[in-house]
């Protein structure tokens, strides 16, 4: 039963990918290329590229893509449901516990310890994206000088607009996309 197999495969991917998109990649490969003959390695590389180019979590994007390839649109829905099912159960349990006990002194202390760390992680993710935008790779290159000037211009203008007018980020995203098309076509 192909639907059940899809559900079970993506259930495992959803359950074991802790720490966001890139942690899920090897798990997805293992399930859809190695264990099941659903995608070839080239198709897998393609879907990873598409998943990065389109909005949405990598796991959900690949669940949809694999589902469609294997069993059409219903397959996509089933695979996606399998993928989010573990999250729904676990996160909702944690949410219940959080709202039940967050008034406790000790729990507040633990949460107060976590908050600065969360900010640090978001900052680090932001820097990774910034490096990606400037140099087109995940890590800093040895030679820092030849960076993408257009990317720098879009970044600086976006940050000025955000700080000065507190613009809705969705407008910044749309604006920087249009700016990308215009500026990169000029050169």
């Amino acid at each position: 039963m192909i639907y059940l197999e899809l559900f079970w495969s993506f259930f495992q991917i959803g359950l074991f990918s802790i720490g966001g998109g890139y942690a899920a990649m090897p798990l997805i490969q293992n399930q859809v290329v190695d264990i099941h003959p659903w995608l070839t390695m080239t198709q897998f590389a393609d879907i990873m590229t598409i998943a990065e180019m389109t909005p949405g979590p990598i796991a959900i994007n690949s669940a949809t893509f694999v589902g469609i390839q294997v069993a059409g649109f219903p397959g996509a829905i089933i695979a996606t449901m399998g993928c989010i099912f573990p999250s729904c159960v676990i996160v909702m349990t944690l949410a219940y516990i959080y709202y039940r006990f967050r008034g406790l002194n000790m729990v507040q202390g633990i949460l107060a310890g976590l908050r600065p760390a969360v900010i640090a992680m978001i900052a680090s993710a932001g820097i990774s994206l910034f490096i990606m935008a400037l140099y087109g790779q995940r890590t800093l290159p040895a030679d820092l000088i030849p960076f993408d000037v257009i990317a720098m211009i879009i970044f600086v203008i976006s940050i000025i607009v955000l700080r000065k007018w507190k613009t809705n980020p969705l407008w910044i995203m749309a604006g920087s996309g249009v700016a990308g098309i215009i500026l990169y076509s000029l050169i």
């Binding site: 932001g126 994206l129 910034f130 990606m132 935008a133 993408d148 257009i150 990317a151 720098m152 879009i154 970044f155 976006s158 940050i159 955000l162 980020p169 910044i172 995203m173 604006g175 920087s176 996309g177 249009v178 700016a179 990308g180 098309i181 500026l183 990169y184």
Partner: peptide, 10 residues
């Protein structure tokens, strides 16, 4: 490429 810069700024 443009949106990546926008995201970084946000």
């Amino acid at each position: 490429a443009g949106m990546l810069c926008g995201v970084a700024a946000v």
